[in-house]
Design a protein around this nucleic acid. Structure first.
Lengths: 258, 258
DNA sequence: GGGACATTTCGGCCCGCACCGAAGGGTGAA
DNA sequence: TTCACCCTTCGGTGCGGGCCGAAATGTCCC
């Protein structure tokens, strides 16, 4: 042990002693770093629970392979499982995990944007409207955010947003229970940069509450096997009435025909 | 194209056609998923630029191995390189990347918290005060945030924060140029959950501006080979005077002795 | 009870890649 | 020019882990 040691002390040993360090971060990264697992997590990003078989299909692997992946992710507490009959339903363990995936997505989209891919039909639906774990995204999400800003219901910026007094009244008028989610007077929301639109939309508690409202009011419906959502006729009318935004009802005929 | 096809269409092919999907996310995850690279990224999380050799040391690998890692991460635009003489300085490519790493860290700390590790001296320094890419964290960061809230300079919640009018005056009194960073009247900041304290502290533009001010005023100094920062005597006095918080100057003697 | 189905465990194959030693540009100092 | 140093590329080794086939467990339904 000489002076040099202090500088050349094995970093790995040092890292092992340290708290949340590169190693633990690497474990999470490695879990997300496999295509099969990444596809599973992506499929779970809409906030729903899916069975092991569903996830195997999304990942494009056999059930036995998927089972191993799911066990590892459950062990690491990235996902949670609830047994129900002979099915086992998996979902993301927490909003924190969803937020992490979201941020990884965002970085990933930075590099993949340049090399253009052929937009598929699935992409079109996704671009129009989709859920981002618990809130709205895509053109719909951005349009809603824009309308809320224009009506002075929220003020927003690159990093965060705040619900104004007028915004409170607006959501209460819609029947959204702000007391349950919002603190005292002020109610903050997180801002989430939209992958496809490259513009901010509303996330956080308020974004989630509005999204829930849209589902409950029958304004939007989940599209099977996709993170995309379809805007119903009633939703199109409702959005126009409430926010003055013109979103045509999603044409599902091509989807249905398929 | 029949009905079955729509359901049993090879998911991998579908993913290839889709936009930012599991595959691109997996690429990023895989990069972060290696211990050596994760340690490098962790080392870069303080926002500084480091040479290839420094990073090799932090990763605990030989220079030639590190070189390969750095090339891959540069290629993926996770980091940026600037040649300077015979040195090559690497730094994180963007705040977005830093934010992603931060969120991965947060998830990673959730799982590693339960199994207690022996707190090393490095941990102690880190817990007291450190930088989180461009803003303050640790006990210092949380104390600053608390003091600002108590003085009604900011209002904050789990997701975001907003600088009040009084807060504007406070920072202007400190000589921080808010015009450069803040929009009109309102100025938002992102909130970052502290890894060690498990409580929110100030991030975003305002957090970064305050951190910069602390460095420029000589209140804090970087600790070599660590993300930790040391509070100077002047800093201790300054923080007491300005925010009324009692942070003793960091005792570096043990560090110097090493 | 028997058969279909969901899910898991086990065993073995094999590809990818992290690692290092050796060697080759490039830059700076003597 | 020569040496020292930083960083890179190349070649070969070894291990981890993702994959599937086969088979076991458990659940639902007839």
């Amino acid at each position: 042990m000489n002076v040099i040691i202090a500088k050349t002390l094995p970093p790995k040993a040092a890292a092992a002693k340290a708290l949340p360090s590169g190693v633990s971060m690497a474990e999470i990264g490695a879990l997300v770093g496999d295509p099969a697992r990444a596809n599973m997590l992506t499929a779970l990003m809409n906030g729903e629970s899916l069975t092991a078989s569903d996830l195997a299909w999304h990942a494009g692997v056999t059930p036995q392979t998927a089972s191993g992946h799911l066990a590892r992710m459950t062990e690491a507490e990235l996902i949670k499982v609830t047994a129900q009959g002979r099915h086992r339903y998996y979902k993301l363990a927490s909003p924190r995990v969803a937020q992490m995936l979201e941020s990884i997505f965002l970085v990933a989209s930075d590099q993949t944007m340049p090399r253009r891919r052929i937009p598929s039909y699935v992409d079109t639906v996704m671009r129009d409207a989709r859920t981002c774990y618990d809130h709205l995204a895509g053109r719909l999400g951005v349009a809603v955010a824009d309308a809320l800003v224009q009506r002075r219901c929220v003020e927003l910026d690159d990093e965060a947003a705040v619900l104004t007094r007028r915004g409170h009244r607006f959501f209460e008028g819609l029947g959204v229970d702000l007391e349950a989610i919002g603190r005292k007077r002020r109610c903050f929301c997180r801002v989430c940069v939209d992958l496809t639109e490259r513009r901010p939309h509303l996330a956080g508690a308020v974004g989630a509450a509005f999204c829930t409202h849209c589902f409950e009011a029958g304004w939007i419906e989940r599209v099977k096997d996709s993170r995309g959502v379809a805007v119903t006729r009633r939703g199109s009318a409702g959005l126009m009435e409430v926010l003055g935004i013109d979103i045509p009802a999603t044409d599902l005929r091509r989807r249905v025909a398929a």
